[in-house]
């Protein structure tokens, strides 16, 4: 449970960093880096939401 919460926080920080990177270095995010950026953002967003749902279900079971 604690690990999941830490993971969630980590992914949230990653999302914030990626958004900041997109704002600051949007001109350099071309080609493969654009795809890498999209993949990282999608993965961190999806896992963050999945972890949130898992935590909520775990709480409900208790």
């Amino acid at each position: 449970m604690k690990t999941l919460k830490r993971l969630n926080t980590f992914f949230l920080i990653v999302i914030v960093l990626l958004v900041v990177i997109d704002i600051l270095f949007a001109d350099y995010l071309t080609g493969i880096w654009n795809r890498v950026f999209i993949a990282l953002l999608a993965i961190s967003l999806g896992l963050s939401v999945v972890i949130e749902v898992v935590i909520k279900k775990h709480k409900k079971k208790k």
């Binding site: 990626l18 999209i38 961190s44 967003l45 963050s48």
Partner: peptide
């Protein structure tokens, strides 16, 4: 934060 990230992703 998630919504902000999702909006950036959607725009990309």
């Amino acid at each position: 934060l998630r919504l902000g990230g999702a909006s950036v992703l959607a725009k990309k």
